[in-house]
């Protein structure tokens, strides 16, 4: 019996190893090519490892960083991501707390609305959204978080509600009896309880917002503000030739922060899952 499960586990490991190789390969290719000289990147040579002749060191990275607008793009992307994630965490957790603890028809409807918003494809609303964003002057990086809050709310509320339901209401009642106002209960008790979920939500939303291409392209003024994913597009832009090397380097630089965020947050996600599963 034990022998059998062990064998099955080993088989799974092998399968998963190949799956992860499949996932990792594109990233590896980008990394590989970002270290090659321009002439060595073509359809036929893309799969080759850099050799002594084609190895370019970090030249492509220097080019990418020195390229027009890279640093400001990086800053805009970071600013949009951070403000949006903070807004989503704060508003959605408070909202989810309220609608799980106060059960009326209205709160139930609001919950369903949030769940429903997750299944509406972005393409369906994007044109009306961009014209509305124009009218409301939401077309700058400084206030883009308002729009991301709207699109991120569905998933965040869904996740927060799911966790909130598993938290016994006793703890909040105890805090009310101990003398807190509802707001104090929220800040002193609810937020710390929600922390593992907050980390999960933050990672998911950050990955999406950081990498998002379509929404900022549609809403931001392309000539004034470019996020990283928009900038990458411009490496192959209007000059007639594609600067493959710097583009690959730029892609690597673009995904680096989000990978770091994920690796740092990852253990909190795992901890959160375990803490929820074990009582007390």
């Amino acid at each position: 019996m034990k022998e059998k499960t062990r064998r099955i586990n080993r088989l799974w490991s092998v399968v998963m190893f190949f799956v992860s190789v499949l996932y990792m390969y594109p990233i590896f290719m980008v990394l590989m090519n970002s270290l090659k000289v321009e002439s060595a990147i073509s359809t036929s040579t893309a799969f080759e490892l850099p050799t002594a002749e084609t190895f370019a060191g970090f030249a492509n990275y220097e080019n990418a960083i020195n390229a027009q607008g890279f640093l400001s793009s990086f800053f805009y992307t970071a600013f949009i991501t951070i403000t949006s994630v903070l807004a989503i965490l704060f508003f959605c957790s408070m909202f989810a707390w309220y609608i799980t603890r106060v059960e009326t028809k209205v709160t139930k409807a609001l919950y369903l609305l949030c769940a429903f918003s997750m299944v509406v494809p972005f393409q369906m609303v994007m044109f009306t959204l961009s014209s509305m964003a124009d009218t409301l002057n939401l077309d700058t990086p400084w206030v883009l978080w308002v729009i991301y809050l709207g699109f991120g709310a569905g998933l965040a509320v869904f996740m927060f509600c799911g966790f909130m339901r598993s938290v016994p209401v006793d703890i909040e009642e105890a805090s009310m009896i101990d003398g807190s106002s509802p707001l104090q209960t929220y800040f002193h008790i609810v937020i710390p309880l929600l922390r593992p979920t907050m980390v999960s939500v933050a990672i998911l939303e950050a990955m999406w917002i950081w990498n998002d291409y379509l929404l900022p392209t549609l809403i931001l003024d392309i000539n004034k503000y470019r996020t990283i994913s928009m900038l990458i597009q411009f490496f192959r832009g209007s000059y007639g030739r594609v600067e493959m090397g710097p583009m690959m380097a730029c892609i690597m630089l673009a995904i680096l922060p989000i990978i770091i965020v994920y690796l740092v947050g990852q253990k909190h996600i795992i901890k959160g899952v375990v803490a929820g599963a074990v009582k007390g």
Binding site: D170, I171, E173, A174, I177, H188, P192, R195, G280
Partner: peptide
């Protein structure tokens, strides 16, 4: 008033 709950309701953090 103060109250002691069946589930203890301690603040876990």
């Amino acid at each position: 008033i103060a109250m002691v709950f069946q589930s203890y309701a301690l603040y876990p953090h």
